[in-house]
Simulated assay, not measured.
Amino acid sequence: MTEVLTEARGLARHYRIGRRVLHALDGVDLAVDRGATLGLVGESGSGKSTLGRTLVGLQKPTLGKVLFEGKDVADAEPSFLKRLRRERQIIFQDPSGALNPRMTIGATVLEHLSVQGWSRAEAQRQAAVAIEQAGLSTAFLSRYPHEISGGQRQRAVIARAISTDPAFIVADEPVSALDVSTRAQIMNLLRKLQMERGLTMLFISHDLSVVAHMCRDVAVMHLGRIVERAPRAVLFKTPRHPYTAALMSAIPIPDPVREKKRTRIILKGETPNPANKPSGCSFHTRCPRATDICRSVDPPMREMGKGHEIACHHPLE
């Protein structure tokens, strides 16, 4: 039986822009099982990073709850909040922007640990262990970010994240800024750390081939809402939401014959503005299956099979 480690319930995050309100998150319900890696995919601007940052406490929700081990984070006691700062970590997309150029890698990791209450001696031991588990030697602790490669910088960011022995990590597009060979190395490192440490991970990416390699389950996000969730094999073989099917059709196939024969789904029009979302289903303006009910009624999430949920009035067969 699976155990939920962290969960979003009715999570909303709104930003006021002049007289309008941008709905970055709009009623998200999402549970992440302990020890699993959940992939989160969607177009740019769909709210993936906002959701990840809210789940680790970098942003506060406008509405809804974030639960960790079944406890509402907003009502948590000080001792529990202190532990949460160690238990929830994030790996950012751009390793150069995530590291202070005026600090060595070692100073960056030590600062991260000392802020959370580690003694200097404990922090030094943790930093050495983390940097080696991230695939670098302790010699890198004395180097500055500009003295190492992009892949090594991302390993340093990973070392900082795992140095506190977290239970939950949000990996926000962690390989998108890297070249192909380095990308594979970092993905393998994350999988190794996840298995060795029993980490629970939310892996955010726009690259579905990366998600297929990394994740057990996949959730699809569109304009601040989860529109489909399923086990990886099920979602990639039989996507039921038209939006998911369009995303899947964009994955390149390394077989020229099969690639030539298949039909790509080209969505017409532009993604609606989150500050001026359409009524009903937010995807209906681009959906080839849209009807009157789609334009007026927001579809609720419903079960389509074991572990397969979808928010659509007219799911694909």
Rank of each mutant, 00 (worst) to 15 (best):
282 S>T: 09
182 T>S: 06
284 H>L: 05
199 L>T: 01
232 R>V: 15
276 N>D: 14
274 P>W: 04
160 R>M: 15
220 V>S: 09
215 C>Y: 11
238 T>K: 15
157 V>K: 11
192 K>G: 12
279 S>A: 14
260 K>Y: 11
150 G>K: 00
158 I>A: 11
246 A>F: 04
186 I>E: 02
182 T>P: 04
236 F>T: 05
203 F>T: 08
257 V>T: 13
209 S>P: 10
153 R>C: 02
222 H>P: 03
271 T>E: 00
169 I>E: 14
252 P>R: 05
208 L>G: 08
228 E>S: 06
159 A>Q: 09
241 H>V: 05
244 T>L: 01
236 F>E: 12
261 K>I: 06
165 D>A: 14
215 C>Q: 12
250 A>L: 03
198 G>V: 10
208 L>R: 01
244 T>C: 02
208 L>Q: 06
208 L>E: 08
177 A>P: 04
221 M>P: 10
242 P>K: 05
240 R>P: 02
166 P>C: 06
180 V>R: 12
160 R>T: 10
159 A>R: 15
194 Q>L: 07
253 I>F: 00
212 A>W: 12
221 M>Q: 01
247 L>H: 12
187 M>C: 03
269 G>D: 01
206 H>G: 12
210 V>W: 01
204 I>Q: 05
244 T>Y: 03
176 S>M: 00
225 R>A: 09
228 E>Q: 10
264 R>S: 14
210 V>Q: 07
202 L>Q: 13
181 S>W: 12
248 M>D: 08
169 I>R: 13
219 A>K: 01
211 V>F: 05
246 A>N: 05
160 R>C: 04
200 T>N: 10
182 T>H: 04
194 Q>N: 13
250 A>T: 13
240 R>V: 12
213 H>I: 00
150 G>E: 03
189 L>E: 11
232 R>I: 11
248 M>S: 01
205 S>Y: 12
254 P>T: 05
176 S>Q: 05
150 G>Q: 06
254 P>G: 09
242 P>T: 07
245 A>L: 03
280 G>M: 09
197 R>S: 00
197 R>I: 07
151 G>K: 11
261 K>G: 04
180 V>E: 09
165 D>L: 11
168 F>C: 08
178 L>W: 03
202 L>D: 05
276 N>M: 00
202 L>F: 08
256 P>R: 11
281 C>A: 12
167 A>R: 15
179 D>K: 07
269 G>N: 02
164 T>E: 01
196 E>R: 12
196 E>N: 09
237 K>M: 10
283 F>D: 02
155 R>P: 11
245 A>D: 15
187 M>L: 14
179 D>E: 11
157 V>N: 12
176 S>K: 13
176 S>E: 01
201 M>K: 14
229 R>E: 14
193 L>G: 06
261 K>W: 10
239 P>F: 06
257 V>G: 00
183 R>G: 01
227 V>M: 00
174 P>W: 05
158 I>P: 11
186 I>Y: 04
